[in-house]
Amino acid sequence: MPHQCTDCGRAFDDGSKEMLSGCPNCGGTKFQYKPAGTSDSESTAEPAEPPEPPEPAVDSTVARTVGNAATAVRDLVSSSSADSLDDSGGQSEQSPTSVTEQRPAENHAQASARSEVVSRDELPPAPERFRAAPQTTQSGQTTHSPPEPEGVTRDEGNSPSKPPASTPDDSTAETADSQDDSHEESSRPDLSELRKELNDQFESIRVVERGQYELNLMELYDREEYIIALQEDGKYTIQVPERWND
């Protein structure tokens, strides 16, 4: 219970919405921020409101996550913009702040965790829980300019050439997906060509589609056994040489 009404002493969990319109008990608008560690001493005031915990507990974890995220982002970016995050959930100072001040700070933390990082530039190696953010960052970069293939080639170095799949939409995750798709499409011809080449080398009969076949005459000529029946799935029945020579 990081927040406590300075008038009546009622405690609120981090991220609780109850205090947005003032303390439900006394209508007070000033709240004191208390980190989890120090709240034990004042736990006496809490038992007054047992029903609250379930809901706030969820919120608190969310808020904590956001707070952690904000901290991590701040550490990574270490820019002036991160200073504004100091007021967010995971802080140690006990500073009485008004609701109106407190809330925007959290919102800002959340916003920065989601959006600010997106628009920020270099954040290549991010913690695991930030996997979404770097992706969007990459996509943000890619939508800006053609360097997007860099990200793609880094993912899969197999494809040497790819058409500049310019995806004008800025939607983050979708952009990333569509990029992957377009990349897959662009790399498909290479794979199919390779496959074809291998088929040409090793397969005597290739089923292109139902009723469409490609034959490697040399393979057919070279093989000992005699293919006597084909199936649609590319399997075929052979007759062993001994039987053939009877």
Binding site: I205, L217, I227
Partner: peptide, 25 residues
């Protein structure tokens, strides 16, 4: 008809395999 054409195609492919085998043996 398509089904006949598909069957003819398959049989023709088998036929090529047979022809190549005859050539070998």
């Amino acid at each position: 008809e398509k089904e006949d054409a598909v069957r003819r195609s398959r049989e023709a492919t088998e036929g090529v395999a047979e022809a190549m085998h005859w050539l070998r043996e």
